[in-house]
Amino acid sequence: MTTLDGMLDGVRVMVILRALGPQQTVERAEAAWAAGVPLIEVTIGTPDDVPSLRAAVEASRERGLGVVAGTVVTPEAVRVAADAGAVFTVAPGLDPDVVAASAEIGLPHVPGVATPSEVHRAVHLGCRWLKAFPAVSLGPQWFSAIRGPFPQVRFVATGGLNPVNAGAFLDAGAAAVGLGSAGDDPAALAELAGARPGALSR
């Protein structure tokens, strides 16, 4: 099983595609890949979203890339994501049953957290990569502060981020940022994807 460290090491930005049909999902994914973003997330909050995930996975294989399944909030969704070919799953919150189902299948999972208690619980459950959500409400200073008690945890900042404010979160300690509809600008994506820490907020 490929680890999250192996898949996310060096990845600065992910593009999140939500509630798009298969064709538009693939088009947006291809634009992100062309901009240098190696991982895209396709949310599967409803059964209608699964064909879009499958289409993106199929398109990614031609490039040797992976696609992430997002909004995975039940053990059944974990199995659906695995069957569709997702390389790992992401959730907006922390559910021990989802973490356990992911471990059983061997599909890495990134749960969502917003408090030190949730981070502590996630670490106890064996998670080292976490989604900080909603990041724009937490603010960049949250990432600076949380690194003290949890230096081993890597955070993907997601929720309300755009190419203008994302740099502040990366500089504050987020390992990566997730952009939704704000990730439509290929030039901004390319800049974020290749940025070094400290280069964007000065």
Rank of each mutant, 00 (worst) to 15 (best):
A19M: 12
V50W: 09
E30W: 13
V87N: 00
V72R: 10
E27P: 09
A31P: 11
V67W: 10
W33S: 06
F88M: 01
T71G: 14
V42W: 12
G45K: 07
P22E: 11
Q23F: 12
D48T: 14
L39V: 00
P22Q: 09
G66H: 02
L94G: 00
R63Y: 11
S60I: 07
P47K: 05
V99S: 00
V73Y: 13
V50M: 06
P38C: 00
G64T: 03
W33M: 06
Q23S: 15
L94H: 00
A59N: 11
P96F: 08
G21H: 05
T89P: 14
A35N: 05
P51W: 09
R61M: 07
A34Q: 13
D83M: 15
I44R: 06
A82H: 12
V50G: 08
A91T: 11
P51D: 09
A91P: 03
T43M: 04
V67T: 08
A101C: 09
G36V: 04
E76Y: 13
A69G: 07
S60Q: 09
A84V: 14
E41G: 01
V80L: 06
S102L: 06
Q24M: 11
E58H: 10
Q23A: 14
V78C: 12
D95T: 08
G45I: 06
R54V: 15
V73T: 13
V68M: 02
E41I: 03
T43V: 10
G85R: 05
T46C: 12
V26P: 06
V37K: 00
